[in-house]
Simulated scan of single mutants.
Amino acid sequence: MAKCKPLCALKKDDVKSMMKKLIKIVSKPTFICEKCARVANDEDYLCHGIALKTKKEKK
């Protein structure tokens, strides 16, 4: 997937024009932003992304 700016930097018009791509980015998230709490499937889409813990890691 092509690089885009962090989700927190998107403006309302960006969201409207990128809706299909955004759905792919936030589907099955594996990262969460420590700063803004947005989620994505790639850390590059977040300003301060950290990996979400999987069920196996929660022990």
Rank of each mutant, 00 (worst) to 15 (best):
N41W: 04
A40N: 01
D13K: 15
K56L: 15
M1L: 12
K21F: 02
N41I: 11
C8M: 06
H48L: 08
S17V: 05
K55I: 12
A2R: 15
T30L: 14
S17Y: 11
A37S: 10
I50R: 14
K59N: 11
C47I: 07
K21G: 06
V39P: 00
D42I: 05
K20C: 04
R38G: 02
L52C: 05
I23E: 11
A37P: 02
D44Y: 06
P29Y: 07
C8A: 10
A9Q: 14
K5E: 13
C47W: 01
I50H: 08
T54P: 04
N41D: 08
I25Q: 00
S27C: 08
K20A: 07
D14N: 10
E57L: 08
V26A: 10
A37R: 14
I50V: 11
K16Y: 07
Y45K: 02
A51P: 07
E57Y: 11
I25S: 00
S27A: 15
C36R: 01
H48Y: 07
V26R: 15
A37N: 15
A2W: 06
T54S: 08
L46V: 01
I32H: 04
P6A: 06
K16G: 06
A40E: 00
H48P: 03
L46P: 00
K58Q: 05
L22S: 05
M19G: 06
C36V: 03
L22G: 06
I23H: 11
A40M: 03
H48V: 10
N41K: 11
G49T: 01
K21I: 02
H48T: 12
K55V: 11
A2Y: 12
E34F: 03
K21C: 05
A9D: 11
R38S: 03
C4K: 08
V39Q: 12
Y45A: 02
I32Y: 02
C47P: 04
F31P: 00
V39C: 06
C8K: 04
K28H: 12
I25R: 00
K35I: 13
M1F: 07
K53W: 15
K55F: 14
K21P: 11
L22Y: 02
I25K: 01
K16R: 13
C36Q: 03
M1G: 14
K24W: 13
C47A: 09
I25Y: 01
A37H: 10
A2V: 12
V39T: 15
K58E: 07
C4E: 15
M18T: 05
K3A: 13
T54Q: 09
I50L: 07
L22M: 04
R38Y: 04
T30G: 11
D13F: 04
K58D: 03
L10M: 09
K58F: 10
K28I: 15
Y45R: 01
A9T: 04
D13P: 06
M1E: 13
G49V: 01
D14F: 01
K5W: 03
I23P: 02
V26K: 15
K16A: 04
R38M: 07
K56Y: 11
C8S: 07
E57F: 07
Y45I: 01
D44M: 09
T54D: 12
K3F: 10
